[in-house]
Each structure stands twice: as structure tokens, then as C-alpha cells.
Amino acid sequence: MNIIELNNVTKNYPLGNTTVHALRGIDLNISKGDLVSIIGPSGSGKTTLLNIIGCIDTPTSGSVKIEQQDISTLSDKKTTDLRLFKIGFIFQTFNLIPVLNVLENVEFPLLLMKKHSKDEIRNKSIKLLSEVGLQDHINHKPAELSGGQRQRVAIARALITEPSIILADEPTANLDSKTGEQILNIMKEINSKEHTTFIFSTHDHDVLKYAKRIIKIKDGVIDGEENQ
């Protein structure tokens, strides 16, 4: 079953007097439980594609369906809720809320959901932080953590809502190779355990071994696909 369906998606950006064609007609289906890597050189359209899948950006044309729901018809509120309930994000630059400590950052999405009790949220957050090896840092502020630790907090935050899809934009780009490997191992483990769909972009070929499916993108079009 396809969890994500992209049909002839294009994305154009105005840049001065010219138009940048970031995506030029992408057709892509991703199944539940996939671990997909989108690979391509800088400026190939990887991040734009992830943003459109993550409902952060809208396509210029074409349709995007998440769990059979066409996102172009959704209001801002519903799109926000879709991101909250269905999608988890791991950004390239470890975007955490600077004024909240590690535990509060992880709790944040669940608190927005207003569906769980305080104790439930606390216990679940601590459990997740233990799983990513940060049980001893729950009271630290993001500024007091290393890059790898921050990215692990971001993973825990992305997982806390048990989303169907986790999008990671170059999750290892700012990490040393050892930490990057740890992060990818965590992602792989969760994918196999929880059947969470992972889509991550990268231009690092060493990262590709973790993916079940590799989608190559070049100049805004899919240039090839590999299954591993």
C-alpha cells in the first residue's frame, strides 16, 4: 500500500527575472515501512521534494497524497495537524527549541496534540530518550549538547508522536562519521521495529547502505532508482 503518492509534481521558484525549475514532473510512490534514500547533487531538488512530501511546501502543479489524502485541498490548520500527527521531521541543522531542555523538546509535539496525560508524555519521552542514549541529558538545554546529541533529540522528537512517515533532510550532514553512523543505525532499527516509513535525503554515498530503496534525483527529475 502506498503511503505517499506524487503525481507529476513540479515546483518552480522565481529568482529575479528568471524561474528556477526545482522539480520538473516527479512521479513517485512510497510504501509503508520503506526506508528510502533520496540521493543527488546539491541543487538537484532533494530538499524541495522532501518539503513537498512533508507538507512544508506546496507544488506548483501535480498532486501529492499522504495516506490517500490530497494535501492541496487542506486548510493551513489541517495541514499543520497532518504534520503533527502523521509526519516526523529531522532537519539538517538540528532544529530544537532553544529555551526548552532535552526532555521538554521531545515532549513538545505530544503536548501540542493534547491527547495524552502528563505522566504518559513524560514516561514516553524518557523512554525514547533512553533509546537514543540521552537518558543522562534530559535536563540539558540544546546549546549544552553536541551535534550528534542534538540530532538524537531531534530523532526522539520525531518519533514521539509515532508518525507514519519520518522525513530527514541530510541528517548526518553536520555530524562526524561515527555519530552519523549511530544516527542511521537508530533510524534503521526503528524502521524495522515499528515499520515507520523513513525518507532521508543525502549526497553521501556511505549512507546509502542503510536504505532499502534509493531514488536518484538530478536537475529536478528522477534519474534512476535502486532497491537493496
Binding site: 512544508i56 499543520t80 500527527f85 521531521f89 532544529n95 527549541i97 532553544p98 513538545f108 501540542l112
Partner: peptide, 16 residues
């Protein structure tokens, strides 16, 4: 902008 944009990305509504 980065902080607020990130909050919005992970599910914070405009009212928040």
C-alpha cells in the same frame, strides 16, 4: 523565524 518556522513545521498552529 527559524525557531518559529520549526515549531510550525512540527505541528504548532498559528494560534500557538
Amino acid at each position: 523565524i527559524p525557531e518559529i518556522g520549526m515549531m510550525r513545521a512540527i505541528g504548532a498552529r498559528k494560534s500557538f
